[in-house]
């Protein structure tokens, strides 16, 4: 019944109702996620923030059909996560670039295109296009080890953008990079989002990063993993780096911190 209602809502890209996931481990069941209700709309930039163990990565992996929910419902593009995966309706960016060392950058970007059966001409067109999107034009013939960590992560974003997925799932993609590189990539990611109109779900544990990037911030807490606050950002779409010193930005960051505190994320 409500499945039908949710499917009718065309602009909803991810829709979770009472979603829960319990892992069965040797030490007994672990409640990774419980009672998650969330609606991600087309064109949203949603950040998931919280301390480790709050289930933010698990939630992203449920969307991607890398984990199966044990309670509640979730629809991705109006279908089950499994069908969404089979329809290749999302691109996933992992914490590490996970580029194949034996493939050049352009061959790495071609990997999903080869698997999905794109023609050679189409592959080349898309490689050139996505390399330009992540500012890596001219680096296509390099091998991953010849690139810096930030460039490798940009190449992995290009790989996720290469096929026609409107949803981009990013699991702490800049977590391993230094702050200067991270600032730079945040700026580029916003530009890319504005240009491509993708819907982005972004996991992070950095408050400034979440506030700077998002239209919607989902604050999460551990034991059991749950959503404690959902904040709609009031910041404009155009965001220079120094917006992070405005009172408006700081107010949102403060509310995120309060949400984390309410979920006992700062307890010992």
């Amino acid at each position: 019944m409500h499945w039908v209602n949710m499917a009718e809502n065309q602009s909803s890209v991810v829709s979770a109702k009472n979603l829960g996931l319990t892992f069965q481990t040797n030490d007994g069941p672990v409640n990774a996620l419980t009672g998650v209700n969330l609606d991600v709309r087309k064109g949203d930039f949603v950040s998931f923030i919280g301390p480790s163990g709050c289930g933010k990565t698990t939630f992203l992996r449920v969307i991607a059909d890398l984990e199966k929910a044990t309670e509640g419902q979730i629809l991705v593009n109006g279908t089950t996560p499994e069908d969404a995966r089979k329809n290749r309706s999302y691109g996933y960016v992992f914490q590490a670039a996970a580029l194949y060392p034996w493939r050049t950058i352009e061959k790495n970007i071609a990997l999903p295109l080869e698997i999905m059966g794109y023609s050679k001409d189409e592959q080349k067109k898309r490689i050139d296009h996505t390399l330009a999107l992540v500012n890596l034009t001219g680096f296509g013939k390099k091998y991953p080890w010849q690139l810096s960590g930030g460039m490798q992560q940009r190449a992995s974003i290009a790989r996720a953008l290469a096929f026609d997925a409107d949803l981009l799932l990013m699991d702490e993609p800049f977590g391993a990079l230094d702050e200067i590189v991270r600032d730079h990539l945040n700026l580029q990611l916003l530009e890319l989002w504005a240009r491509t109109n993708k819907t982005i779900c972004f996991v992070t544990h950095s408050i400034p990063e979440a506030v700077y990037l998002s239209t919607k911030i989902v604050v999460m807490s551990p034991r059991p993993g749950r959503v404690t606050d959902i904040i709609e950002s009031t910041l404009p779409k155009e965001r220079p780096l120094d917006i992070r010193e405005t009172p408006e930005f700081l107010a949102i960051a403060h509310r995120v911190r309060e949400g984390l505190k309410a979920g006992h994320s700062y307890d010992d």
């Binding site: 059909d65 590490a96 996970a98 194949y100 080869e114 698997i115």
Partner: peptide
């Protein structure tokens, strides 16, 4: 690594593709 296998899973790659594009190299 698991991350490389997960990546192929998100692409809905077949076992043959998984073998020739990841496991064998």
């Amino acid at each position: 690594e698991i991350i490389q296998l997960d990546l192929m899973h998100t692409y809905y790659a077949s076992r043959t593709q998984l073998f020739w594009k990841l496991r064998f190299p």
